[in-house]
Structures are given as C-alpha cells and as structure tokens.
Design a protein around this nucleic acid. Structure first.
Lengths: 248, 248
DNA sequence: CGGCTCACTTGATCTACGTCAAGGATGGAT
DNA sequence: ATCCATCCTTGACGTAGATCAAGTGAGCCG
C-alpha cells in the first residue's frame, strides 16, 4: 500500500481502525466527536523524516499503517534506535514542545494525528484520556528498560533473537498462529536498521542471522521473510525465559 | 544518617522536604491534606531489597534521602541497572500491580509512600496529579532512551564520563557550584554497581576511572570522592555536546 | 596488635565483535 | 539487455573490553 504524501480522507475516530490500542480506545461517543474535530490523517513515504530531533512538535498521534523508528544520533554519526513504532503505537509528548529524537518512516506510513494544543485541552477535561496516556507511557518505559538489558548485557546472538521474538509477537496479526505453531513474518527493517537497534554493526547482524539459520532456529526466504519453527527455542536463544518485553 | 528500618514520624506533605519535584509539588492545601491521610514514611538499610521483581506493589512514593537502584537480572545472573533513584525521584506504577524489576537500596534510604489504592482514587479525581505523573513518566522515558544510546553506542570511557556527569549534575545540591567552577561530589555507587549500570565489568570501570584520573579529567580522593575541575571537558569525554540526559 | 573482609587496582591473556575489503543478489531505470 | 544502486553476505584481521589472577589498602573486630 503506497500513499502519496499529504492529507487524505479516512474514516473518523468513531470507526478508527486502530481503536483497540490507541488513545481513543475507551472514549465515549461524544468524546470521539471531539477527537474527530481535531484529527487529521497524514502519510509519509519510506525514508522520510517525520520529525527532526529538536523540532517543535505540533501534533500527537498514532501509527495507522507502516513502520517508523525513533533514533538518536551523536555528532560523529553513531546512531542508536530507541524505539520502533508499529501500527497502533502512539507518538508524541503531551505537555512537551520539542522532540528529543528523530522519527523516521522506514516504510510508507499513515499517521492519525491530533493537533497538540486542543488535544492537551481535551486531556485536561477528560481524565481517562490522561490515564490512557499514562498507561501507554508506562508501557513504553517498561519496553525501554527491557531493551536496556538487551543492549547492556546480551551477546550479539541473543540480541538478534530478542529482536526477532519482539517482531514476531508484534506481528501477531499475520498467519495462522496456533499457539506453538510456526511464526511467519516479514522483517520490517534492513540489516543496518537492526544493527542500529541492537548496538551492533550490520556485518555482525548478517553473520548472526546466518548462524541462526544454519542452526535451524529460523528459516529465511529471501532476506526479509522469516519463519520461526519453534518460538520457545527462539526465546531460549534470546536468553528470555520470561515472555520477553515488547518494545512499544 | 542512619535510620532504623520501620515506620517513623516525619513532617507531613504540607512541609514535605521534597515537594519541589515530587507528586505533590503543585497541590492545593486541601489536596495535601488528602495526601497526608494516606501517607507514611518507611526506611530501609543499605543493601536491602525494597521491592522484588514480580512482587505485588501496594504503594507508590518518592525517595526522601538515600539512593536506590532499579535492576533487571537474567536467569544466569547477568544484571543490568535500568534506573537510579535519587532523592525526590518517584517509584511506582499507578494502575499496575507487579513490579518489573528489583528496587534495591544502595545506601540507607528513607521513602515517602502513599498507599496505592487510595492514591489511584485520588489521581482519578485530581487531574493535575495525573498530569504530574505523566510528566514524570515522560522524563523517565527520555532518560531511559538517552541511556540506550550510552549502552548501545558509547565506549567504556564515554560511558564512565556519562555516568559521572549525570551524578555530578544531579548532586547539584552540594558545594559552591559557580557555573564553570569545579564540581565535587561523592559517588553513591560501588565500582560493581557502576559496571551494572554501564553494561561493563568492574575491572573495566576501575581501569577507566584510573585513566580519567591520569588524564586530569577527574581527581579522586579515596575511591568515591570525585572532583571535576572542568565539567565541559567531562561532557566532551562523554561524547555529549548536548547538555546530556539526566537519568531519573 | 594481627587477622579478616570488602572494595578496589593492576597485569596478562583471551575473545567477541568491529573494521576493512571483496563479492553476490535483486530490482528499477534506460 | 545492461547498467546501476541497494542491500546483503562472507572472509581476514585488529582491538576494546572480558576474563582470570594477584595484589593493595582501609575499616573492623577480636
């Protein structure tokens, strides 16, 4: 699905395709109307930077379709991805002006945006929207901290396995996924993006992907299409006996 | 200051020593009274675990004095610190039951706690408390993401310098700190704790501390008392031209 | 005072991952 | 069809930081 950049017409909040996780998940009909009034859709092409680090952000919103990343960059060019935005994930910092990192579309992407000022006012008068935001922020915080363990203490192989199991779990939508059955999905990231996520180089990512394939932990068709015959095995490889955090 | 474990009497919220950053920073007198009603103080000894990962948490609260850490541990014992709690920092997850990581007192510590259930009810009816919590959570999220860059992409020397500049900045209270003047503070962490924070081994931490000392970036009296003659220099070493994130 | 522990330092070696370099596969433009 | 640009793989080699192993020095308790 490729969409031209710019504003388009899409269903209103009352039948928003991502209501199950988004801000408006628990809104009453009249609150949805209010949200509709300040809402607009916006699409970006793969590779486009949606928000530059330091920019003033005048909206908040959710990803409807496509994938984006949050990245931080040092002056010498070293970059670290600090978040992955999949459909239904929220972007934005009510009450804050600047963005602390770049938001980049890695595929063509559709965002459902709310103008920030009116959204903040709505938040003031609608307690459960504020609570929903707090919940989502706590989820992201948990995910970020889980990822700190990955970055600080896991080996390259464990890092790759961790990333694969996160993507596999988030990509639940796809496929007959009987519990225990194989998980099949498309990696939404290049090897370089994976490396930036995991604090590795793209060569190391490539080598470890080959190793996991050689050892039968995953199967690869092409470079991006992944089959995980045994999720339990993959999670062992990730060093995760817990169900593993899901980086928001 | 050493305090026996258990409940003690301390000033009420109306003159809480940490109001400047804590939940109640913006409360009206009547709201403070309500907070007082569900509040209690609790102290822990150095080394005590305040909350075990997976435990049910029945309170939220702030650190009044002393230092605690948030750590995650893998089954094989590898551990990663995911947060540092200094005085006025908040602990707790309104709306959540379990703790996702251990909270450990690294010094004797005094906490100002609110019983969770009534606190959550208060939050429902007091919008600006909910907003304050959202703000604090966003701060922690920013700090966690800043730290992801440290863990994923910085060298051992840069990591140490990053940690030192965070502690220096948070320990602002101490000393004549004319801007540009030397910063003097006590490290609240053992070399091992620093290592767990930075994703290094204690030997590497020790070596890099010695190197920074040898190169005149810091001065050490004993093992813990640090003088930073030039904060700008330290921040350069951290690879931070920005003012550097402050890990909450 | 000696002996103990705990936190730290320093050295010698090992290794996982980074770096540099040379291809291969795919897909889109001409 | 051929050219080119991306994205990916694989090999050879170098190095930052881990690991293993001795110490040192400060507090503490008899």
């Amino acid at each position: 699905m490729t969409i031209a950049t710019g504003q388009t017409h899409l269903p209103s909040c009352t039948d928003c395709p991502i209501r199950h996780r988004a801000v408006c998940a628990r809104c009453e009909p009249d609150e949805l109307q209010t949200l509709d009034a300040i809402k607009y859709y916006r699409s970006f092409e793969a590779g486009q930077t949606i928000i530059w680090s330091g920019d003033k952000m005048d909206f908040v919103g959710s990803v409807v379709s496509g994938i984006a990343t949050l990245t931080q960059t040092m002056e010498d060019g070293r970059t670290q991805m600090v978040g992955l935005l999949l459909p239904s994930d929220f972007v934005g910092r009510p009450g804050r002006d600047g963005a602390p990192y770049d938001v980049v579309a890695t595929t063509d992407i559709m965002m459902c945006c709310f103008r920030k000022k009116p959204f903040e006012q709505l938040m003031m008068t609608t307690p459960h929207i504020a609570h929903r935001l707090l919940e989502m922020t706590l989820d992201e915080l948990d995910a970020a901290r889980e990822w700190m363990l990955v970055l600080g203490r896991k080996t390259a192989r464990e890092k790759i396995a961790s990333l694969l199991s996160i993507v596999a779990r988030r990509d639940a939508s796809l496929d007959a996924r009987r519990p225990g059955g194989p998980m099949i999905f498309d990696l939404p990231l290049t090897r370089e993006a994976m490396a930036d996520y995991l604090g590795l180089t793209l060569e190391t990512v490539s080598r470890q992907m080959s190793a996991l394939k050689r050892d039968g932990v995953i199967r690869l068709e092409g470079k991006r299409h992944v089959t995980v015959p045994d999720m339990g095995r993959l999670m062992e490889e990730a060093g995760d006996d817990s169900d593993g955090g899901c980086l928001a």
